[in-house]
Write a protein that binds this DNA or RNA. Structure first.
Length: 593
RNA sequence: UGGGGAGUGGCCAAAUUGGUAAGGCACCUGACUCUGGAUCAGGGAAUUGGAGGUUCGAGUCCUCCCUCCCCAGCCA
């Protein structure tokens, strides 16, 4: 039965939620090497006269941190590839190391995957739930002479392992009898030995050029309680042993992981080859693809954790973080993240995707689904001298030009307004066609106005603009057909809502901060202006009851979403992304040329 | 200097397995526009890491070389 991949948005998030409700396409256009392999496998079944196998994939996070955009790539791949083939995708906690894991993380992981729009149905699993079966497989290995209990400590084991260029040496405990191994392993389980005192190792080849095959540890003693199995176990299986067997137990057909696991594939296959899998229908195979790297950020869980723990950001869900929760708080939609993951493709070469590609995806989604509103970030007072004092007009404003069904709203207009400070220049450069002395522009949905004067303080700073309006241009159209080169957003001074607006910039100053130079640390590359707090913003009054999670386009300024910190009367917005800005490109070119 | 993986416009990424280098992002130009947004139309940009070789024909096959990434946790 095909899994349901329709997005389900647990958080009410205004326009963003609407965007999320767009169904995941059943089949995406692209055909990467993984999809090709699966198609070939299926075709092979048919050609051989076998029943067409059910494609089963899985997303197997370790609950030791929050999910990030790199995980989203893997999540989208696994879930959509299964759905495209009428198969299913499991969500499995790869929780074999209790010392690093916590339920906090399993909760955030399930919430994030769901928020992204994927549904694992009843197929939610924990490697921990397989501990008993895994243990039995280990005994089987022992009985077959393929595993032994080793008494070497960690340091000794490192010495025996050899190096990249030298083979390792056999452990002195490698030739223990089956009986002794079994006895010792059972006593390991029974808790007779201290943590780290002994290990169970696969008996493979200490001279293997692939270090993963040099008698790898498959069980270690760890006297710590597990977030799921409690104190039932004091021995825990290692990844290489647990993962392939978990895949086999679940009937996973295609086990997709990232490139750093390529050397582990030999061990993945070795374990499956040396254990009796006849009770299980499928023989899983591992395929690797390149992990995602994004410019100006990092994807390493370790680094992300340090950013949180050392207080460089406010938490895992800080809007500057590449975490799913951070991006959600920043205003990214599930649909935009999915579109991004589809857009970058799946391949095996190392990559560094430009942030602009991600931004394109949010803008593309938000543009179509987000209501427009007017908000002035850096207010400059404007007085319309020929507009009657005390008069208030309610003008019609379009909610979303991309979506007529979004309707219109009323915005108050009066004699005193605020406009964006950067929309006025006393001595405008060429190609600046906003407001300047003597120049006429349109106030959106309002009137044509002409700047007639500038008021300055003693320091020479502009504090106020004096203008006149043309009453014949109500609504923003000139009956005589005359044109104006710019349309400015504005808010009525007396009606405007004050708000805190958090403007985010790149977290790091380097395109690839993970590439740390000699003598530096990654934290040397933190961008000191990654967060700009703006407390002077003035927003249109329709935003009074804007609720956390709702997203708006502040016309001409960008996309903004209401932060959970926000309260009526004390609104807080996060800038999701700016609008594409041709004027900024003009300025940049001028600076470069 | 062992093993493995990878090199295609600025960034991603295709190329029906030998048939004459898609597409997206970014950038530029024009049209349109009550968002310098969106939309539409167009454009520049690749001797496919390099050198040889096989072939009528090579991004795809062969040889050699260069560069980058991963592996020496009782992490995943």
């Amino acid at each position: 039965m095909p899994i349901d991949t329709r997005p389900k948005s647990p958080t009410p998030s205004g326009a963003g939620a609407d965007a999320a409700d767009t169904a995941v396409p059943a089949a995406s256009g692209g055909s990467d090497f993984i999809r090709q392999i699966i198609a070939a496998d299926l075709a092979g079944d048919v050609a051989a006269g076998r029943p067409r196998r059910t494609i089963v994939t899985r997303f197997p996070p370790e609950p030791n941190g929050y999910l990030h955009i790199g995980h989203a790539k893997a999540i989208c791949l696994n879930f959509t590839v299964a759905a495209e083939n009428g198969g299913r995708c499991h969500l499995r906690m790869d929780d074999t190391n209790p010392s690093k894991e916590d339920v906090e993380y399993v909760d955030s992981i399930t919430a994030d995957v769901r928020w992204l729009g994927f549904d694992w149905g009843p197929h939610f699993y924990h490697a921990a739930d397989y501990f008993e079966r895994l243990y039995l497989f280990a005994e089987e290995l022992i009985c077959k002479g393929n595993a032994f209990v080793c008494d070497l400590n960690a340091e000794q084991m490192r010495e025996y392992r050899g190096t990249l260029t030298e083979p390792g040496r056999h452990s002195p405990w490698r030739e223990r009898s089956t009986d002794e191994n079994l006895d010792l392993f059972r006593r390991m389980r029974a808790g007779e030995f201290a943590g780290g005192a002994r290990t169970l190792r696969a008996r493979i080849d200490m001279a293997a050029p692939n270090i993963a095959m040099r008698d790898p540890v498959i069980y270690r003693i760890q006297h710590s309680s597990h977030h799921r199995s409690g104190d039932k176990w004091c021995i825990y299986p290692m990844y290489d042993f647990a993962h392939c067997l978990s895949d086999a137990i679940e009937g996973v057909t295609h086990s997709l992981c990232t490139l750093e696991f390529v050397p582990n594939r030999a061990l993945y296959d070795w374990v499956l080859d040396h254990v009796d899998l006849s009770a299980h229908s499928s023989r899983p195979r591992q395929f690797e693809f390149a992990r995602l790297n994004l410019t100006y950020t990092v994807m390493s869980k370790r680094t992300l954790r340090l950013l949180v723990e050392e207080g460089h950001v406010r938490g895992w869900d800080d809007p500057r973080m590449p975490t799913i929760s951070g991006m959600r708080r920043r205003g990214y939609t599930p649909a935009s993240i999915r579109a991004f993951c589809e857009g970058i493709g799946i391949a095996r070469s190392d990559n560094l995707v430009q942030f602009a590609q991600l931004e394109f995806c949010v803008r593309d989604d938000l543009n179509r689904h987000t209501p427009r509103v007017m908000g002035v970030l850096r207010p400059l007072k404007m007085v319309i001298e020929n507009y009657p004092d005390g008069r208030v007009e309610y003008l019609d404003a379009v909610n979303n030009p991309e979506d007529p069904s979004a309707g219109t709203r009323k915005v108050p207009f009066s004699r005193e307004l605020y406009i964006e400070r950067e929309d006025f220049q006393e001595d405008p450069p060429k190609k600046f066609f906003r407001l300047a002395p003597g120049r006429e522009v349109r106030l959106r949905y309002g009137y044509f106005i002409t700047c007639t004067g500038v008021v300055k303080n003693e320091a020479g700073d502009i504090t106020e603009l004096r203008c006149t309006y043309d009453p014949a241009t109500t609504g923003g159209n000139a009956p005589d057909g005359r044109k104006v080169k710019a349309t400015l957003h504005w808010v009525a001074a007396a009606h405007a809502l004050p708000a805190e607006v958090r403007l985010y910039n790149q977290l790091f100053t380097r395109e690839n901060p993970a590439r740390v130079e000699e003598g530096a640390t990654i934290f040397d590359y933190l961008n000191p202006t990654s967060l700009e707090l703006n407390t002077e913003a003035r927003l249109e009054e329709s935003l009074t009851s804007a609720a956390p999670g709702q997203t708006f386009q502040f016309e001409r300024m960008g996309y903004f979403t209401v932060d959970p910190d926000s309260r009526t009367g004390a609104l807080v917005f996060n800038r999701t992304a700016t609008l594409k800005d041709e004027w900024a490109n003009v300025l940049k070119r001028g600076a470069e040329g």
